[in-house]
Simulated scan of single mutants.
Amino acid sequence: MLTQQHIVINGKHTKPIVMDVTYPENKTNLPIIIFCHGYKGFKDWGAWNLMAKQFAEAAYCFIKFNFSHNGGTVEQPIDFPDLEAFGNNNYTKELDDLESVIDWVFNNDDIKAITDPNNLSLIGHSRGGGITLIKAEEDNRIKSVVSLASVSDYARRMDALCDLEAWKQNGVTYILNGRTHQQMPHYYQFYEDFIANEERLTIKRAVLNLKIPHLIIRGNDDTSVLIDEAKNLHQWNPNSELIIIDGANHVFGASHPWEKEVLPEHLSDVVKKCIYFLKTK
C-alpha cells in the first residue's frame, strides 16, 4: 500500500509551496527523491502522479512540488490561476524553493522517521533540470542527480524569449500557453535577476564542478530541447551517464491530462532506468 500526503510549506518569497509526498506504508530508511517540474509545468501535470507511485512502489519516498511562483495556488495547484505570480517568477526563486523543500526534509520529524535524509536525490525535467543541476553542485546534502530532457543554457533561452529592448521598455513580455490559451507574462525582473546572478545560473559552470553521480536521459524525438543540450551536459561531466531513448519526445509520451491508469511506455522506461541508476550508484 502507498500513502500520499499533500503538504503546504512556507516559501522564502511570500508565497507557499504546495507539495505531495508519496511512499510505501510500513517502510523505513527510504531513500528520497525530490522532483522539479519544468517551464509552464506543475507537480500534477500529465502522468507525474503515476510516476511518483512507480518510484514509491520501488521503495522510494518521492516528493514533488509546485514552485511557489509557477502560477498555481494552494486552492488550485493545477494550471495557472495566478498569472501575476507567474510573471514574477525567476530562477533564483526556484532555487530558493528547492532549498526550502530540502530543508523541510531534514527538519520534519515525521519524514525523518521513515526516510534516510542522507540518501537524497534530485530529478529535474526540462527547465527544472537546470535548477536541480545548479542546486546539486552547491548543496552537499544531495547525493545524486538525474536530468530528464534538461536544458543546458539559461542565457540562450533568455535571449530567445523576446527583444530585450522592447522587454525593458514595456516591463513585460507575454508567451502564449498553447494548451490553456493564456497569455503568460514575464516581467522584466526575470531578466534583471538572471543578469545579477548569471554566474550562479550558468548550468555549464555547475555541471563542470559536479562531484556526484549524474544521469542524463532524453528522447531523440524531443523538439523542445534539442539533443545537443544533453550532449553538452555529458561533455561537461564525462563521469555522467547519458541515455537516449529512441522515439521518445520531450515528455516521454505523456500529455495533460493523462487519463490512463498506466504510464506511457517511454516514461515507464525512464523510471526503470532512474531506479537502476540510483540503486547502483
Results as ranks from 00 to 15, higher is better:
Met1Thr: 10
Leu2Asp: 01
Gln4Gly: 01
His6Glu: 12
Ile9Asn: 00
Lys12Phe: 04
His13Cys: 07
His13Val: 06
His13Glu: 10
Thr14Ser: 14
Lys15Val: 04
Pro16Asp: 01
Ile17Asn: 04
Asp20Ser: 00
Val21Met: 02
Tyr23Leu: 08
Glu25Pro: 00
Lys27Leu: 04
Leu30Gln: 03
Ile34Asp: 02
Phe35Gly: 08
Phe35Lys: 08
His37Leu: 07
Tyr39Arg: 13
Trp45Cys: 04
Trp45Ala: 05
Ala47Asp: 06
Trp48Leu: 13
Phe55Gln: 00
Ala56Gln: 01
Glu57Thr: 03
Ala58Lys: 13
Tyr60Val: 06
Cys61Ser: 01
Lys64Tyr: 00
Phe65Tyr: 11
Phe67Gln: 04
His69Gly: 06
Asn70Gly: 07
Gly72Gln: 05
Thr73Gln: 06
Val74Thr: 12
Pro77Asp: 06
Pro77Cys: 10
Ile78Gln: 14
Asp82Lys: 05
Asn88Phe: 09
Thr92Asp: 09
Lys93Leu: 15
Lys93Arg: 14
Ser100Leu: 07
Val101Asn: 02
Ile102Gln: 01
Asp103His: 08
Asn108Leu: 06
Ile111Tyr: 01
Thr115Pro: 03
Asp116Gln: 14
Asn119Glu: 07
Leu120Trp: 02
Leu122Lys: 06
Ile123Met: 04
Ser126Ala: 09
Arg127Trp: 09
Arg127Gly: 06
Gly128Pro: 07
Gly129Val: 07
Gly129Ala: 05
Gly130Pro: 04
Ile131Leu: 03
Thr132Ala: 09
Thr132Trp: 03
Thr132Phe: 02
Leu133Trp: 01
Ile134Cys: 10
Ala136Met: 02
Glu137His: 13
Glu138Ala: 12
Glu138Lys: 13
Ser144Asp: 05
Val146Arg: 06
Ser147Ala: 11
Ser147Val: 02
Val151Gln: 13
Ala155Trp: 13
Arg156Met: 09
Met158Thr: 03
Met158Gly: 11
Ala160Ser: 12
Leu161Ile: 09
Lys168Met: 07
Lys168Leu: 11
Lys168Thr: 04
Gln169Glu: 10
Asn170Met: 06
Gly171Thr: 00
Val172Ile: 09
Thr173Ser: 09
Leu176Ile: 12
Asn177Lys: 05
Asn177Ile: 06
Arg179Asp: 12
His181Tyr: 08
His181Asn: 14
Gln182Ala: 08
Tyr188Gln: 08
Phe190Ser: 05
Tyr191His: 11
Phe194Asn: 08
Ala196Cys: 00
Ala196Lys: 07
Leu201Arg: 03
Leu201Ser: 02
Lys204Arg: 12
Arg205Phe: 09
Lys211Thr: 14
His214Asp: 01
Ile217Met: 04
Asn220Gly: 08
Asp221Asn: 15
Ser224Thr: 15
Ser224Ile: 15
Asp228Lys: 13
Glu229Arg: 14
Glu229Val: 10
Glu229Thr: 11
Asn232Asp: 15
Asn232Ile: 11
His234Cys: 13
Gln235Phe: 15
Pro238Tyr: 10
Pro238Cys: 09
Glu241Val: 12
Glu241His: 12
Ile243Thr: 14
Ile243Gly: 10
Gly247Met: 09
Asn249Ala: 11
Asn249His: 09
Ser255Trp: 11
Pro257Glu: 10
Trp258Gln: 08
Trp258Ser: 05
Lys260Asn: 14
Lys260Gly: 10
Val262Gly: 03
Glu265His: 14
Glu265Lys: 15
Glu265Ser: 15
Leu267Trp: 07
Val270Phe: 10
Val270Cys: 11
Lys272Ile: 12
Cys274Asp: 02
Phe277Tyr: 12
Phe277His: 10
Leu278Thr: 09
Lys281Glu: 13
